[in-house]
Design a protein around this nucleic acid. Structure first.
Length: 484
RNA sequence: GGCCCCGUGGUCAAGCGGUUAAGACAUCGCCCUUUCACGGCGGUAACUCGGGUUCGAGUCCCGACGGGGUCACCA
């Protein structure tokens, strides 16, 4: 039998990382098994409609290399793949259930229900619909229906016994039936609820494996009741654990760390993000950590899914990102980092190519780049303390002396290239019998104003250019002698 | 609160009755080196707690504690 999985997001305008991982796992499993991966848009809540939200879903998935075989844009044998376009299809199914006694019309208004719920909560009880409308006579129902009183259709859950099902990651799950609420299948506006549409669509679309977040663990018995009432085959369930920010919080919108777009904007690479995400809650069973999408497909196994929630570790993601950046072909890195250089170096004539060579092994996340190179555009304020470095045998006194020593050497450099600067300076240092560090450390501080820089004195001097280097050097000398 | 799930270092995580309890990130130290980064080497650090079962328990059972989920005309 062909394996068919699906990702069924609702268009909210954002792609949550947890959702992305769900999509990824569905995709990986389908590909691994040679099956089909379906994209379905669940937009039955008209109040939540967001303009352009489906495009966000398409773009994110496509950008990550998660391609679907059937979906709203590519079509397929089970279309349409947007729930709002399937609206008319659900009511007949609900009515079928009513005829079978597995569901019933309910005329209780939302307000009445809210009141009863509040009353129950006030008493510290769990509110459960009391099946009030189940007791209506056929005549009463006909009459209300005929007079146009708004209604919903609810499922009729058993109140005794227990429901059991098997989940691939959690094993056998068992729930007392008296905890099951008669959930609404068709809303007063005629639209199906998520709960109902989901079951009907999964069946109609031939979904064999339902992979979704574990928040559905406890409503699954109700879905199974529905499948059974219809006489449909129950799919395999694969409930995925939640991706957490820390042990008590999910990844949240508030912290700006929940959405795919947040990470892309910060300068995380989608390959790194996908790679890391795949590993939160799943592992290949060996020690591999780096995976291309194809390798992920090859290695993926739903039996190795973890059943304990995983915390999304920003540090580890950042490490993955840095590793991916280091492995980027240089030209790709240059192209990607250029706009980040531009943020602070746009007016300068900095050699981006050379800077990029220096920066590639030092870039963890692209949004950290501007702060690292800003000193090239503008000499930062710095403290004289920076000249002190025990290991380099440098302090402000030594700095003054050695900077005065190196100034004429630099002035006489015939050609301002890195190698010439390097050779001439090293020559002079050796000739004077000085220590490399005692000259080079102060020099780098003098022209960068920073304790650490991407590259040493020669690289920075080259990048700055002769004019700017001399300008900064003279300024440093002034500052040093002033305080001597 | 009812019901359900989960519990190995700070984090991810291997382990499926007998191991010196892997590995990765983070952290710390050393080496390389004109800083930082990269790279190399090494260190610190864990089975939530009680009871059982067993010759033997991180692995099985029960309980406690802790964390999470769910109880909508949201999905």
């Amino acid at each position: 039998m062909e394996i068919r999985t699906r990702f069924a997001p609702s268009p909210t305008g954002f792609m949550h990382l947890g959702g992305l991982r769900t999509a990824l796992y569905n995709y990986l499993f389908a590909r691994k098994m040679g099956g089909k991966f379906i994209l379905r848009i669940e937009d039955t809540d008209q109040d939540r409609y967001v303009e352009g939200a489906t495009e966000v879903i398409y773009d994110t998935l496509k950008g990550c290399g998660i391609n679907w075989d059937e979906g709203p844009d590519v079509g397929g044998p089970c279309g349409p793949y947007v729930q709002s376009e399937r609206k008319s299809l659900y009511l007949p199914y609900a009515k079928q259930l009513v005829e079978k006694g597995a569901a019933y019309y309910c005329f209780c208004t939302k307000e009445e229900l809210d009141e009863r719920r509040a009353a129950a909560e006030a008493k510290g009880e769990v509110f459960k619909y009391d099946k009030h409308c189940l007791n209506l006579s056929k005549e009463e129902i006909e009459e209300k229906l005929a007079s146009g009183i708004p209604y919903v259709i609810r499922m009729n859950c058993p109140t005794t016994g227990e429901s059991t099902y098997h989940d691939v990651v959690f094993g056998d799950m068992s729930f007392p039936n008296d905890t099951l609420d008669d959930m609404i299948l068709i809303k007063a506006d005629g639209m199906p609820t998520y709960n109902f549409a989901n079951v009907v669509d999964d069946h109609l679309m031939g979904i064999t494996h339902v992979m979704r977040g574990m928040e559905y663990l406890s409503s699954t018995p109700k879905y199974n009741l529905l499948y059974n009432a219809f006489g449909w085959e129950i799919p395999e369930y694969v409930h995925l654990t939640t991706v957490m920010r820390d042990s008590q919080h999910k990844l949240s919108k508030r912290d700006g760390d929940a959405y795919y777009s947040d990470f892309i904007e910060k300068g995380y690479l989608k390959e790194a993000l996908i790679n890391y995400l795949a590993l939160v809650g799943w592992n290949p069973g060996d020690e591999r950590e780096f995976f291309t999408m194809d390798e992920l497909v090859e290695a993926f196994d739903i039996n190795r899914l973890n059943n304990a929630p995983g915390i999304f570790d920003m540090d580890k993601l950042t490490w993955f990102n840095a590793e991916y950046i280091r492995k980027m072909p240089f030209e790709d890195y240059l192209a990607t980092v250029t706009p980040w250089f531009d943020k602070v170096l746009a007016g300068t004539n900095t050699d981006y190519r050379r800077l990029a060579e220096l920066m590639q092994s030092r870039t963890e996340v692209f949004n950290r780049v501007p702060d690292m190179v800003r000193f090239l555009a503008e000499m930062p304020e710095y403290d004289l303390e920076l000249y002190y470095n025990k290991k380099m045998k440098s302090d402000s006194q030594v700095a003054l002396e050695n900077l005065q020593f190196i100034l004429p050497v630099l002035e006489s450099i015939p050609e301002w290239t890195e190698t010439v600067i390097h050779d001439k300076v090293m020559e002079a240092i050796a000739a004077a019998g000085k220590k490399n560090g005692a000259v080079l450390w102060p020099l780098r501080i003098a022209i960068s104003g920073q304790a650490s820089t991407p590259g040493g004195a020669f690289e920075i001097a080259y990048l700055l250019g002769r004019e700017e280097t001399m300008k900064r050097l003279n300024a440093a000398l002034g500052k040093l002698s002033e305080n001597a």
